[in-house]
Amino acid sequence: MAARIGILEDDEALRAYVEAVVAGAEGMTLAFSAGCLADARQAIVGNPVDLCLVDLKLPDGSGLDFVTDVKGASAAKCLIFTVLGDRSSVLLALKSGADGYLLKDTPADLLRTNIDRTLRGETPISPQAATFLLEMWRGAEPTTLPGRLDDALTVREVDVLKLFSRGMSYRETAELLGISAHTIGDHVKSIYRKLSVHSRTEAIFEARQIGLISPLD
């Protein structure tokens, strides 16, 4: 029997992309696809699922609230699929019961593989997110920016800033990093929020001021 997959993602284009990934995977079928927390909660009523792909930042709440709902009502797996790769988000998601943590730049074939792994009881985690767990296991101090823990820029966000500082466009940056322009946009929104800036120029300046990128970048 095909595994029933639910999708909770507020971006229409990305949601359509994930739907296509599920549709093209052998042994999977789409149970529901929702763009907000309220719609997802309604979708799972009387509609059994085996795994839900869940974004964290939603227009009407946190994806972790949905994880709690699903875990409290069924044995379904919840695989986080988000642009947020900071330490705080990773640890909070896993403590909330998530069965895995993937970043949105995960290629389609790897996304399918990790859905299968999660269904088998494994806990796939993107390498960047896994770094924080390794730090905890080693008892090392996490590498973050000064200030609040959830304001730390991710490795990928720093990569984006470095390429921007070299004059690269959104499209060029996406091609060099091997991810979509949409994902670049998500990274930029996160960078602006964390650095409290409103433009690429301001972001690059702030990143250089706090040592994230060198003056030569």
Rank of each mutant, 00 (worst) to 15 (best):
V90F: 07
P124R: 11
A98I: 01
A207T: 07
P127V: 05
G147M: 07
F205M: 13
P142K: 10
A16K: 04
I44G: 05
L53H: 10
T118F: 09
W137Y: 11
A140M: 08
I210M: 14
T183Y: 10
L110R: 14
T131H: 09
D99M: 05
Y17Q: 09
F32A: 02
D150A: 10
V70H: 06
L212Q: 07
L177I: 09
C78G: 05
D39G: 00
T154P: 00
A75K: 15
K162L: 04
N47Q: 13
P59G: 11
L212Y: 05
V160I: 13
D159Q: 14
P59L: 12
K104L: 02
V22R: 08
A31S: 15
V188L: 15
G85I: 07
I191M: 10
M136T: 05
T201N: 14
E175S: 11
V155W: 03
S199L: 12
L14C: 00
K189W: 02
A108G: 04
A98F: 01
S74N: 10
Q42K: 09
A73E: 15
L53G: 11
L58D: 05
A93E: 06
E141K: 13
L51W: 07
S199K: 13
D150H: 14
A40D: 01
G61K: 08
I204Q: 11
S169P: 12
V21H: 06
A38F: 03
M168F: 14
A31N: 10
A130R: 13
E172Q: 15
A152R: 08
M28Q: 12
T143I: 11
R193M: 07
R87T: 02
D55K: 03
R156G: 01
P215I: 07
S180F: 06
I5D: 08
T82M: 13
L56S: 05
C78F: 04
A181D: 12
E141S: 11
E9W: 08
K104M: 06
D109S: 15
A108F: 07
E141G: 02
F66V: 05
T143E: 12
D86W: 04
A130L: 15
M168S: 15
G167V: 12
K57G: 00
R138P: 01
V90Q: 04
L14Y: 12
V21C: 14
T106H: 08
L53K: 08
R87I: 07
S126P: 08
D105P: 00
V197I: 10
Q42C: 01
K104Q: 08
G167Q: 12
P48C: 11
L103H: 04
L134G: 13
A16Q: 08
S33I: 05
V160Q: 09
S62W: 06
E172Y: 03
D10K: 02
V49C: 11
G139D: 02
L30D: 09
V188H: 01
T113Y: 14
D11E: 14
Y17N: 02
S169G: 11
R156M: 13
R193A: 15
E202T: 09
C52Q: 03
L51C: 13
L14R: 01
